[in-house]
Amino acid sequence: MNEIKQIEDHLFRLTPPEDSLLFEAKIILDSNLRSNVLLQQQTYMLVQQYGRKTLKAEIDAVHQQIFTNPEHKNFVSKILSFFKK
């Protein structure tokens, strides 16, 4: 778990510059650590992509609910009027 925390701190730039430089040297020297850093970095990217995809789905659902529900007709008209010239 200590290595995971060190990798996380390095990836999110939470370590002081001198510690970061030392950790980068360790990455160069230790192929197992280098592999773990890459895997953890990929994991964070996947989590971020999933979060974006989930947020987009939620926004689309709200959009569908507002723009298809007749009770929101006045609100939709006001919103659309902003984009008309």
Rank of each mutant, 00 (worst) to 15 (best):
F23I: 03
E24I: 00
H10Q: 06
Q41G: 05
N36E: 10
I27V: 12
S20I: 03
P16V: 09
T43K: 12
I4G: 05
L46K: 07
A25K: 15
I28D: 15
E24W: 07
R34H: 07
I28H: 15
L39Q: 13
N36M: 09
T15K: 10
L22D: 11
D9I: 00
E8I: 05
L38E: 13
N36C: 07
E8A: 00
Q6W: 08
K5W: 06
P16Q: 10
L11N: 02
H10R: 01
I27Q: 09
L39M: 13
T43W: 05
Q40T: 10
L21K: 11
K5Y: 08
Y44R: 08
V37L: 08
H10W: 11
Q42N: 11
I7R: 10
E18R: 14
S20R: 12
N2P: 07
Q41T: 04
I4L: 14
S31N: 04
F23M: 02
D19I: 05
V37R: 02
L38Q: 13
E18P: 05
L33V: 01
Q6P: 04
E3C: 04
L38H: 09
Q41M: 07
Q40Y: 15
N36A: 12
P17S: 06
E8M: 09
R34C: 02
H10Y: 15
L22S: 14
D30S: 03
I28G: 11
Q42M: 10
R13I: 09
D19M: 10
I4S: 12
L21T: 05
V47R: 11
N32K: 08
K5S: 07
L21G: 00
N36W: 02
N2H: 13
E18L: 14
L14F: 02
T15W: 06
L14W: 01
E18K: 14
I27F: 04
L33C: 00
M45V: 09
Y44H: 06
F23N: 04
S20Q: 10
S35R: 11
E18M: 13
Q48I: 03
N36F: 04
L46M: 02
Q42E: 11
D19K: 13
M45I: 10
E18W: 11
N2A: 13
R34P: 00
N2M: 12
F12M: 12
L21D: 08
L29A: 14
L38I: 07
R13G: 08
F23A: 07
K5D: 12
L22Y: 10
V37G: 03
D30M: 05
K26F: 08
R13F: 06
F23Y: 10
K5C: 00
H10D: 01
R13V: 09
D30N: 15
A25L: 14
D30R: 06
I7T: 00
Q40R: 15
L38M: 11
Q40E: 13
D30P: 04
S35K: 12
